[in-house]
């Protein structure tokens, strides 16, 4: 669960694209492609995490005091269930990371999942903004490559016009 900082990395500086040659531009484009795919991956992972937190939150919503004593099937393995009944509807155990589980009451659990969803959503927004920024630069580089190529072609056959 990494936090994303939207501040520019130290050591970053502006480069005039028109001063780079084709090879450098291609290299830059490749680098950007890579970065953008990393963003896509992170976004996907966050989406999955968000879904899980939302699902858990919905499950907690369904845990009402009326559920007490109701029978459920408890999965022992992925394919084997045994009947059981709900003894405690007030408290749930939540995995808070690094192997720690904390007991929370229903209100606390709801709050926990709400916070987690908000956190993940916030990170997603940040990554999306970064992605937009990168794709803008990507477009600019593509345009510059196009321009350079055309200029080269023009230079190669100057007597056609």
């Amino acid at each position: 669960m990494a936090t994303v900082s939207s501040a520019p990395a130290p050591g970053m500086h502006q480069i005039d694209l028109s001063k780079l040659n084709l090879q450098q531009l291609a290299q830059l484009k490749q680098q950007l492609d890579q970065e953008m795919s990393v963003f896509q991956d992170s976004l996907h992972t966050l989406k999955v995490a968000q879904g899980k937190f939302m699902e858990s939150g919905e499950c907690v919503e369904k845990m009402t005091p009326e559920c007490k004593g109701k029978s459920i099937l408890v999965p022992l393995t992925g394919s084997m269930y045994i009947p059981g009944s709900i003894a405690d509807t007030e408290n749930v155990l939540i995995d808070i990371g690094t192997g720690y589980y904390a007991q929370k009451d229903i209100a606390g659990a709801k709050d926990y999942f709400k916070r987690k969803v908000a956190f993940v959503t916030e990170q997603m927004e940040k990554i999306k903004a970064l992605g937009v920024e990168k794709s803008k630069v990507h477009k600019a580089i593509c345009m510059m490559i196009e321009m350079k190529l055309q200029a080269q072609m023009q230079a190669a056959k100057p007597s056609t016009s």
Binding site: G99, Y100, Q103, K104, Y112
Partner: peptide, 16 residues
């Protein structure tokens, strides 16, 4: 952060 948010008498378990 989560542990600090818990009440003093909250039960905490560790997965071993």
């Amino acid at each position: 952060e989560e542990l600090l948010l818990l009440k003093k008498d909250a039960e905490v378990y560790k997965l071993i």
